[in-house]
Simulated scan of single mutants.
Amino acid sequence: MRTFATWLFLLALVAVLRPAPAQAEVCQDGELVIRFAHVVAARGHPKGEMATALAARVNAEMDGKACMRVYPNSELFDDNAVMEALLMGEVQIAAPSLSKFEAYTLKYRLFDLPFLFEDMAAVNAFAYGSKGRELLRAMEDVGFVGLGYLFNGLKQFSATTPLLVPQDAQGLAFRVQPSAVAVAMIEALGGTARRLPFKDVFAALERGVVDGQENTWSNIYTQRFFQVQNGVSETNHQLLAYLALTSKEWLDGLEPAVRIQFLSIFSEVLDSFNARAEAINARSRQKIIEAGGTVRQLTPEERRAWVEAMKPVWDQFRDRIGQDMIDAALAANGAG
């Protein structure tokens, strides 16, 4: 039987061995503490690297006024819990994927429409245009302020079997984000959609809970999804973007000079990393190949078949998203 002293020793040992946050910034007395919680790796991922770079600049340029701590890999909160944590003041910055906001607004379903954007140049043209900026304010009535979009890139499909034409997905179970559009997309392919937290995807693939998934190159590489899949098909079918946001109460409560400086730094870092997102994904794609993973490029005919299979999905969500938003997104193709 363990004594009380033994239990105390074991508890202390656990505390010592528990991994520390990747960004363990020591804040000074009197500094404004800004906590940024996210769910991805601190390195090799656009969001993780952006958060780390943002903290470095805030801690250097706002030293004595503000201190930022970053908590990656769901160390503090996952994307399902972080929204409430923002309103409670337990974190100040989060950047969930846009599909996480369906409980607050359906407008962000726009970004989930399959094959809406031709490339990342079109994404940027829309996001920095009037309609994209209008969407940043879509949740102000429930207490959230959008600070800007952080782009990961376009998504690819993978599965336990090669995926070259839509019929290859029939009967397979795919992990999707909590997005009604994503569910409809998989069902249009004749598959089954299963909503799972990001942190559970690798285990679900490894154990056969799901047969496949859809994600960006950086996620597929950093989370090792390619290791438990037959290959990755380069479909570029859907955008994965995050909305960096905070609570309106917290932002409005900052001293004006502090708020202006913080928002200026945030905007500069965000723009810089959005410009680098394509390069990060290109490197991740190459690393998958170098690690022995299979990447399948579709022929133009094969890709057109995927587009045709997913066309009906648009009609299901057109009214809730708004035709004006869809038109603005389509107009961005070729305008980047």
Rank of each mutant, 00 (worst) to 15 (best):
E187T: 07
T161W: 10
K199E: 14
E206H: 14
A180S: 15
R195E: 09
P178N: 09
K199W: 11
G171V: 07
G191I: 01
V176N: 01
F174Y: 12
R175S: 11
M185S: 14
N215F: 12
V181T: 08
S179G: 04
A193D: 05
Q170F: 09
N215Y: 13
V181D: 04
A203L: 14
A173N: 13
Q167K: 14
A204M: 02
L164D: 15
T160M: 10
A184D: 05
A169R: 03
A188M: 07
K199S: 14
A182E: 14
K155Q: 14
A203C: 12
E187N: 08
L154H: 02
L205E: 04
S179V: 00
I186H: 10
V183M: 08
A203T: 14
F174S: 01
L163F: 08
L189S: 08
R194A: 00
R195I: 09
R207S: 15
V209K: 08
D168G: 08
V209D: 10
T160D: 14
D211L: 07
K199G: 10
V183L: 09
V201W: 05
A204N: 02
A182V: 09
L172Y: 01
P166V: 06
R194K: 13
L172S: 09
F157R: 02
L205D: 01
G212K: 04
F202I: 03
V165G: 11
R194F: 00
T216D: 03
T192R: 11
E187M: 04
M185D: 13
G208E: 02
A159N: 04
L164S: 15
D211P: 05
K155Y: 04
T216C: 01
T216L: 02
G171Y: 05
V165Y: 09
A180T: 13
S179F: 02
Q170S: 13
G208R: 04
A182G: 13
R194V: 06
F202D: 00
D200V: 03
I220K: 03
R195W: 11
K155E: 14
R207A: 13
W217V: 07
Q170V: 09
S218M: 03
T192D: 10
A203P: 12
L205I: 05
R207I: 05
Q167I: 12
A180W: 12
A204I: 03
Q213N: 15
I220H: 06
K199L: 11
G208K: 07
A188P: 06
L205K: 09
A159V: 03
F202K: 06
L189P: 10
A193G: 07
R194E: 04
W217S: 15
F157C: 07
E214D: 15
V183D: 08
A173P: 12
R207E: 15
A203V: 13
L205Y: 08
L189Y: 06
V176Y: 00
L154F: 11
G191Q: 02
V183H: 10
A180V: 11
L172A: 01
D200T: 02
T192Y: 11
W217T: 11
L164G: 15
A180Y: 13
G190Y: 05
D200P: 10
S218V: 01
E206M: 12
P166N: 01
T216R: 05
L189T: 08
